[in-house]
Design a protein around this nucleic acid. Structure first.
Lengths: 174, 174
DNA sequence: TGGAAATCCATGGGCTTCCATGGAGGCTGC
DNA sequence: GCAGCCTCCATGGAAGCCCATGGATTTCCA
């Protein structure tokens, strides 16, 4: 299973375009239900962060799954779909691998000249670089805290999870 | 599977015409049983909201299925079919991608100069913008409320919905 | 092993197409 | 003959498409 990993920083140009990092693009192409090669990105405001959540078909199916647990045409389902699907935008990736981030989404994430793409496995997020750094710092502290728990559960095995990853690998950025 | 997603706001002109958002139109065209390219929109008053429900063939079939599941000649079925079929209109999309919303439906939704189209996956709704904003706010609150439940149903998966996204974790990089 | 060539990728800019919107007729039925 | 409806046309702005560039990395060959 393909995973979105690593972080990248790209520029948002005057027209609101950004290059989707090539590795992410490759995953999205494979994860599109369309045969025509034109792949789309499902993108919506994160519920609890000043960032955007994004992903391919797999992500959309997860939303379907959540709503699918509610009866068809119930009031409740309509209401939740309205919030979940209503805020989603399908961004098309152009021939050069770029997407246009619409104003509303840009505002939610506070995006300016540069944006940070962060892989989260099933999906990825789009952040304003400063805000991301701040959040990342916090997340690392949390990871540190959880290490002990992981270590206990994992017994002697060493997955490298629960440690500060030294690799740094990938992540080029630029 | 095609989904109606995202929201759009278009103008209702003096003749009662509105452009159906292009992405919705594309789905409807694919979802039409007619070969002639002229696609229709099934449209009826929402049962629980001052809005209109709309969709293509797939939606019509779902309604049939829903009614079919109720016992023949039951009060419930009679009432429901009356409520649903009674007010259904098949709106034709003209050459420029517009529909005309008949007076009755317009009244139900309180439509004026502008209308909001919101995708709900299987179908979409048509709202008066002010009412829509109000409902959307409520719906978002409800999503937050439901996150814990979603998290359970969705298992370990991470859509960002249903968890406190403290993630950002891993993803190494620099 | 070093250097040259080829490739990939992010970025910028110009141009064309699409889309929402407004308005002008023409057909039809009352 | 008039009102409502449908078709056709015009337009401005936004979105999408194509091409060019330059830097960085990888490949390949001597």
């Amino acid at each position: 299973m393909d995973r979105f990993v690593s972080t990248f920083q790209n520029k948002l140009d005057a027209k609101g375009r950004v290059s989707v990092p090539a590795p992410f693009r490759a995953i999205l192409e494979r994860d599109s239900y369309r045969a025509d090669g034109v792949s789309g990105v499902y993108c919506y405001p994160s519920l609890d962060a000043p960032a955007l959540d994004a992903g391919g078909e797999r992500l959309a199916q997860k939303i379907d799954g959540l709503l699918g647990s509610l009866p068809d045409y119930s009031d409740e389902r309509d209401e939740l779909s309205l919030a979940l699907y209503g805020d989603v935008q399908v961004l098309t990736i152009d021939g050069d691998g770029r997407i246009i981030i619409p104003g509303g989404l840009r505002a939610h994430a506070g995006l300016d000249a540069k944006v940070t793409f962060v892989g989260l496995g099933d999906k990825f997020q789009i952040w304003a670089p400063e805000r991301f750094e701040e959040r990342r710092t916090r997340a690392r502290a949390k990871v540190h805290e959880h290490r002990r728990i992981f270590a206990q559960r994992a017994g002697t095995s060493n997955t490298g999870i629960g440690r500060q990853a030294e690799d740094g690998g990938e992540s080029t950025g630029q």
